[in-house]
């Protein structure tokens, strides 16, 4: 029994030519069988372990480079310092648990989404209103919304109100265009049968239009939530009393790169958590897809 046969038995699905005990016709030591051994050996390591090893290596190299002076911690921080910052924020003094940013993002997302879906439905019922307001909406949507932050700060103050306003303005347009697209995406074949059956407009809406629009609207929600977070953090960076963005701006101005890096990782994981939550929700609600 050659090495490649052994490995293929241990590894994931053995190809039909490599059934247990089948004679190996590849000449031992050929380039192809070497490549196969390598790929089989890699496949035996679970994916999460491969990622864990990669990240551990990356952190090790970073820490080493920082301690050897190859990577200036004043600009890049260092893993041990970042860990210490996060430990302090989450365990020792708990300041990172306060959740102003998350609360702002959730409020902006819920408010923006509810208003957007309502507006989308209004557009469906009154197409004339839709046509009339389209150019203005396009103009507003084209504007980089974060540029409105100074205005919102003036109107709604330094607190959470101005942050919610920026997040809202981003979420609203994303979910609105998803709602409009979703309603338009109805398969016309699905509308003939209800018509033949004499379904009322209400029945057509609840039983055909809405269910076919939901997946598109949902992808709008997914994006909208990420942008709500972006809007809130962005506004906090500009001026705020609390929040991750405000802390980030403060740490940056005091050159605490460990803290800045720690917060960046925290924000990345927050976004990741939100996305996977939405994915899970989508799979549970839209399992017909």
């Amino acid at each position: 029994m050659s090495i490649s046969t052994l490995v293929s038995i241990k590894g994931a699905p053995a190809s039909s030519r490599h059934r247990r005990g089948a004679p190996d016709h590849e000449p031992a030591g050929s380039r192809r069988s070497h490549a196969r051994i390598r790929s089989h050996a890699l496949r035996a390591v679970p994916v999460w372990l491969r990622h864990a090893l990669f990240i551990a290596a990356l952190i090790g190299v970073w820490e080493l480079a920082a301690s050897q002076g190859l990577l200036d911690p004043a600009f890049f921080g260092r893993p041990s310092g970042i860990a210490a910052y996060l430990w302090k924020g989450f365990v020792t003094d708990g300041t990172l648990w306060r959740g102003y940013t998350l609360a702002g993002a959730v409020i902006a997302f819920v408010g923006g989404s509810v208003c957007a879906v309502a507006t989308g439905l209004l557009f469906m019922v009154f197409p004339g209103f839709h046509r009339a307001s389209e150019p203005y909406l396009t103009l507003l949507n084209a504007m980089p919304r974060i540029a409105l932050a100074p205005l919102f700060l003036l109107w709604f103050g330094l607190g959470i109100g101005s942050k919610v306003a920026v997040g809202f303005s981003l979420t609203f347009f994303i979910v609105l265009s998803a709602t409009v697209a979703g309603i338009r995406s109805v398969n016309s074949d699905h509308l003939v049968l209800p018509k033949a059956l004499g379904a009322t407009p209400r029945q057509v809406f609840t039983k055909v239009t809405l269910p076919s629009a939901v997946p598109v609207i949902f992808s709008g929600f997914r994006l909208g939530l990420i942008f709500a977070l972006l809007g809130v953090v962005g506004a906090e960076l500009i001026a705020a009393e609390h929040g991750l963005g405000q802390t980030l701006a403060y740490l940056q101005s005091t050159f605490s790169m460990d803290g800045v890096m720690g917060l960046l990782f925290l924000l990345a994981f927050l976004g990741l958590g939100i996305t996977s939550l939405m994915n899970r929700l989508e799979r549970a609600l839209l399992d017909w897809q």
Binding site: H190, V192, A196, L197, G198, P211, W288
Partner: peptide, 17 residues
């Protein structure tokens, strides 16, 4: 909406949801 008629369309047009 004539209840006397059942119409089967050319495409299956089942609702995927």
């Amino acid at each position: 909406g004539n209840p006397d008629i059942a119409y089967m369309l050319a495409r299956d047009s089942l609702m995927p949801w």
